[in-house]
């Protein structure tokens, strides 16, 4: 068997997924021994034109990180889909929309206004915004269209596998790449490099009774590093998040609650709805007024329950009048 051909690309991303690939350390050499990387903007000097010139399906595996924020992301996603046999959504942004997806709580025009005009650190002439086409004396310059909403990768192209995480754990990426190299692939559409259970199942913390009268913000209390976060009144997305990032989970080990980057466990369509259901069921009160007060302690439900999954959620985007 010849060497496999890989492409690694980023849409609206931070590059953390690419770094997670590099963080496989010396194992990266094993990947390089088994595969030729034909396109990887953060690390190698290939251009879009090189991809355009490839024959269809000539890339064996494309690892696509990042959300779809503009027409360039969509165009390259479609191009790489056409050239690749297997398309893997790498990381939370490609799978769920990720942190850039929080922009779905804002209007497109409000984002442009603040970034190019309103922000105190912006020194721009009034009314200058990026244009899709700008005429200069020498010719025309083009920029991609900034979309109304952030989309996940599978909202624009067919995705074969999802490798979750923000970023995915390097060890999990390596396992998946090894599975690909040995032809040991699960059925299409599967989430790979994670467990089929909620994070709580692999959480080492002590669990006694989940009854909460106050929700705390992490800076408000010193919390017990041995005990379940939820029982202490700290929102932890463990019940609504797929486990398997690492064992024990890294955030938990560092005494921080899970924030949900591995996305919903199987059979959950809307991670945020699942989590808010879990949170409300541990509130220990039957008094409407007190319930109200306890819920007021959760200051940013959308940013907490949908931090990584707003574009993938059932409602996808805030409605504006």
């Amino acid at each position: 068997m010849g060497k496999l051909k890989f492409a690694i690309y980023w849409g609206a991303a931070c590059g953390g997924c690419d770094v997670a690939v590099v963080d496989t350390h010396e194992k990266l050499l094993d990947i390089a021994a088994a595969a030729d990387i034909l396109f990887w903007p953060v690390a190698l000097d290939f251009k879009y034109r090189d991809v355009e010139e490839m024959a269809d399906k000539s890339i064996d595996v494309c690892l696509f990180s990042g959300a779809v924020r503009n027409s360039e992301n969509e165009h390259i996603a479609k191009l790489l889909r056409q050239k690749s046999k297997v398309m893997v959504a790498l990381g939370a942004c490609a799978q769920l929309g990720g942190i850039p997806g929080l922009a779905n709580e804002k209007r497109r025009q409000d984002i442009l206004d603040f970034v190019y005009h309103g922000s105190p650190s912006t020194a721009s002439q009034k009314g200058v915004y990026p244009q899709e086409i700008t005429s200069v004396p020498e010719g025309k310059l083009k920029l991609p269209k900034f979309y109304d909403a952030v989309m996940t990768l599978d909202q624009v192209v067919e995705v074969d596998y999802y490798l979750p995480g923000c970023p995915p754990e390097s060890a999990r990426i390596l396992e998946v790449v090894q599975a690909i190299v040995t032809g040991n692939l699960p059925p299409k559409g599967a989430v790979v490099g994670a467990l089929d259970k909620a994070l709580c199942d692999s959480c080492p913390r002590k669990r006694e009774e989940k009854k909460v009268k106050v929700f705390y913000r992490p800076q408000e209390i010193l919390f017990d590093p041995e005990r379940c976060f939820l029982e202490q009144g700290l929102i932890c997305l463990g019940p609504a998040t797929r486990g398997g990032c690492s064992d024990p989970p890294r955030c938990i080990r560092s005494n921080m609650p899970c924030e949900g980057c591995y996305g919903p466990p199987p059979d959950v369509t809307d991670q945020g709805a699942k989590m808010l259901s879990a949170v409300s069921s541990i509130i220990d009160s039957q008094d409407p007024g007190q319930i109200e007060k306890i819920i007021d302690g959760i200051v940013d439900p959308l940013g907490t329950f949908y931090r990584f999954g707003l574009p993938a959620s059932a409602l996808r985007k805030k409605r504006f009048p």
Partner: peptide, 14 residues
């Protein structure tokens, strides 16, 4: 309990 939290979340969804 669920209704109050869901309502608060839905308001953030507009």
């Amino acid at each position: 309990r669920r209704y109050r939290l869901l309502q608060k979340t839905l308001e953030q969804f507009g």
